[in-house]
Design a protein around this nucleic acid. Structure first.
Lengths: 192, 192, 192, 192
DNA sequence: TATGAATGAGCTTTCATTCAT
DNA sequence: GATGAATGAAAGCTCATTCAT
């Protein structure tokens, strides 16, 4: 069955990510991926130079999604609504994409993946810069005088919620905590 | 060379943790561990039923350290100083034990380790309960009317700082952010 | 060197059976099998899921040979000649295939192989039924009024000869005893 | 706990035989044997030079039992009762000692055990000779003119019954067939 | 006698990758 | 493009045996 190269690549990536999420990168064999994608092993190596390249492509796809978030933040004038966009994105990533998020986090944290991760991030470094600018603008618009200084703490709160939920979803009331978080940062305007 | 059982176990664990931190659990072979511990492969299996059991022992050791933290919190009357204890512990874990912390986090997050992690945590479940009680007491003493409700957000901030530092130490000014964090929570007394 | 899948499977089985006969299943390593078949170790696992599966295939091949015997019995009208067919088969199995027979017997008798043997026999259970029917018909045609009741004793005699020969070929005059056995069962017509 | 050497040896052998019967010789480790016998591994090697020596001792014990059978046959004047003694012994060996019998047969048949078996039988070769004399005498007394010529067929019947029962106890009505066998050989007096 | 720490060779199995077809 | 046969290295684990204590 002839398909376009892009279609093929997508099929392989779709199969791979499902298996990586479930069993981890190391515990997933190329054989399993190709079986799930219903292609031969040889063909997978036609499209990807190695198993690592598959992971690389996966990370790339994920990072590309950040651009969309940045764009949406740029387009929204209201600071409150921008804060809500960020929170909604977090909730969606972490609740709908629970397994994927766990997989990405562990991939990024494992030192043996360092080179790979560096490689993936080098593709478009301005990506992170743009998002950060949006976050700073948000904090400034929310009333923080030194928004840049506030950013790390803001991010820590965000990532911390995500992390604790992923660690034990049943034990962490993510939606509720997220609402508290929004409240805390919305009120900031009148303070500081 | 004959050694006592405890000594040997420790040597193996010491070698294992160093390698796990550096290359990850999967990428570390039992052969490498025993080479580093300067013993034969067979002997490792004399002391640990499997490679997984080595990891289990390692996690157990780490969790046991929590008890010490809880004890120190209990013993300290001043809320401000208790907050500082928590922060210092965090800084120490994450700066001095950067690699180890990364290793533990990824171990806990990877779904393929679920059973293992469950097993390790079952050993002493009251451990987490006690620490949580201390954290709630701290927040209450810091002036939070509903300390229990505040806990998740507090923890999110703490874990988020640790996480962002581990993700990219050079890009996250941990000490500085931690200071901000302390400030924010110390002031709470007069608010809410 | 590329070969067809069937060819390869046969090569592996041929090598395996020779080694199993000589040294036993447990004492034969997959490495030895693949060395003898002049292929890599990995390839054996491409064709057989496990070492056990190789044994399973071997047993299957052997059991399939029973069908041929049943067919030949069915086709022969004379009872005397049918008795001779059975005896000839026994002599052939046990004299030409001495080692193989010893290997099969021990494989079937060892309790640790129980599951394997059950699995191998489940493939075609009617096989044994058909052969048994032929044996009963033979005994009936040889003059036994209750052929079904006679069958176990008949079989015991047959198997006993085989067994004693295999136990110590030099000490058991199989051909001669087989001739006595034939004589005894041929005369039955006039008796009982 | 100090015990006599003989007691110790017996304990080890008892443990070993139970495990060998269940899992086979190869699949039983010395560790398992010593655990079952509640002694240390070192001690087992104090009493037996090797794992093979344990098997050797086991076979020796079994062969020694033959002497008792021979003695009982010698002491009994009635041929019918002697036949019954043989049959009873067979039934007992094979029904009560089903697993053990299976283990012994496979041990004797496996070519890799040849040297071991030879060694075990060399201890007292006259043992087999004596029993054989008794069997010949029995057949003669039962009315066979050429008892010596009849012996192989007689033995084949005996061993065949044992073998078929061990192969599949549920499918072979041993007691009933044994009764038929006795009948057949008892009547011989008037024939031939 | 008695222990169990220690070894080292060997086992089955997996797997990323290559390549003839 | 597409297949799957083929490789070889390495992994986790077992085990008979030895030996210091």
């Amino acid at each position: 069955m002839r398909r376009s190269a892009d279609e093929r690549r997508s099929e392989i990536l779709r199969a791979a990510v499902a298996l990586f999420e479930q069993n981890g990168f190391d515990a997933t064999s190329v054989e399993e991926i190709t079986a799930k994608a219903k292609i031969s092993k040889g063909l997978a190596y036609h499209y990807f130079k190695s198993k690592d390249e598959i992971l690389l492509a996966l990370i790339g796809l994920r990072l590309a999604e950040l651009d969309d978030l940045t764009r949406r933040l740029r387009a929204e004038p209201s600071a409150e609504r921008r804060l809500q966009i960020l929170i909604d994105q977090l909730l969606d990533d972490v609740i709908s994409g629970e397994k994927r998020q766990r997989f990405l986090i562990t991939t990024f944290l494992q030192p043996q993946n360092n080179k790979l991760v560096q490689k993936a991030m080098k593709v478009s470094p301005e990506r992170f810069e743009s998002l950060q600018q949006e976050e700073i603008r948000l904090l400034a618009d929310l009333g923080f005088k030194d928004a840049e200084a506030e950013l790390p703490l803001f991010r820590a709160g965000m990532q911390g919620m995500a992390f604790l939920y992923l660690l034990n979803p049943a034990a962490f009331p993510l939606r509720q905590v997220a609402a508290q978080f929004v409240l805390k940062y919305s009120k900031k305007q009148e303070q500081t």
